[in-house]
Computed example of a mutant assay.
Amino acid sequence: MAVTISAMFIAVHDPDAALGFYRDALGLEVRNDVASDGFRWVTVGAPGQDVDIVLSQPHGGRSQAEGDALLSLVMQGSLQAAIFRSDDLDTTFEKVRASGAEVLEEPTSQPWGARDCAFRDPSGNLVRIAQA
């Protein structure tokens, strides 16, 4: 039996701003862009990788109270969105920094062996990028 990842979800308050980060700065491709009932979600993914990342608004498909609670966590920067890998961390870091993304940590060799960096996406989510 094999289990693989099909999709993951990242809550974002503004899908267009999220595209500026995930598509334009990180280089992910847009796979789907859907609007329904006043909400929008955009599916992106790394070229050649069969994992979808769904960028969804906190209130889409949730009650008002649940959406408000999730939005509050997102806007506080309390959620870690994802850890990506790059085959050239320094170049990726410079490209993402040039996009205007908030830098939390420049490329650093971590005590646990990884070399990575950290940003906040436009919604406040923590995004790390590790050297592949």
Rank of each mutant, 00 (worst) to 15 (best):
L55Q: 10
F84A: 11
A98V: 11
T91D: 14
L104M: 12
A18Y: 03
A130N: 03
E105L: 04
L71S: 12
Q64A: 04
R120I: 01
L28R: 15
F93G: 06
A132D: 12
L28C: 05
S123E: 07
F119A: 06
Q64Y: 05
A11R: 15
L73C: 12
P122G: 04
L126Y: 03
V54T: 14
G100Y: 02
I10A: 14
P122C: 04
R23W: 00
F39H: 15
G27E: 14
L19Y: 01
A11V: 09
T91R: 12
Q57Y: 00
L104Y: 01
R40H: 06
L79G: 03
S6M: 06
A114W: 12
A65L: 06
R23T: 02
G124F: 05
S78R: 15
W112V: 02
G27W: 13
R62D: 02
D68S: 13
L104V: 05
S72Y: 02
T4Y: 03
S86P: 14
N32Y: 11
V54E: 07
D37Q: 14
W112M: 05
G45S: 08
G45L: 13
S86E: 08
S72G: 11
R115M: 03
T108L: 04
D16T: 07
Q131C: 01
S86T: 09
D88G: 04
Q64F: 00
F9H: 10
A46K: 06
Q80N: 11
G48E: 07
P58S: 11
M75C: 08
L89W: 03
L79W: 00
R40G: 03
G38N: 05
D121I: 04
T43V: 14
A18N: 09
D90G: 03
G60T: 01
P15E: 02
L19T: 00
V34E: 13
V96M: 11
E66C: 06
A98D: 15
V3E: 11
W41C: 09
W41S: 13
D88E: 05
H13D: 08
T43H: 15
N32R: 15
D88C: 08
V103F: 06
T92H: 04
G45I: 11
G27A: 14
E94T: 09
V103S: 02
S36I: 10
G20F: 00
D116A: 08
A101L: 07
S86V: 01
D52W: 07
I83T: 09
V34W: 15
D50T: 10
Q110K: 13
L89D: 10
F39C: 11
F21Q: 10
G100F: 08
S36Q: 14
V30P: 13
W41Q: 13
F84N: 11
L28T: 01
S72H: 09
Y22I: 04
F21H: 09
R128A: 05
D87G: 10
R85Y: 00
G27I: 12
A11P: 08
S109N: 09
A18C: 12
H13I: 13
E105M: 10
P122A: 07
T108D: 01
V12K: 04
D87T: 13
A118E: 08
V12L: 02
F39D: 10
A35Y: 05
Q49F: 02
D121N: 10
L89N: 07
T108E: 08
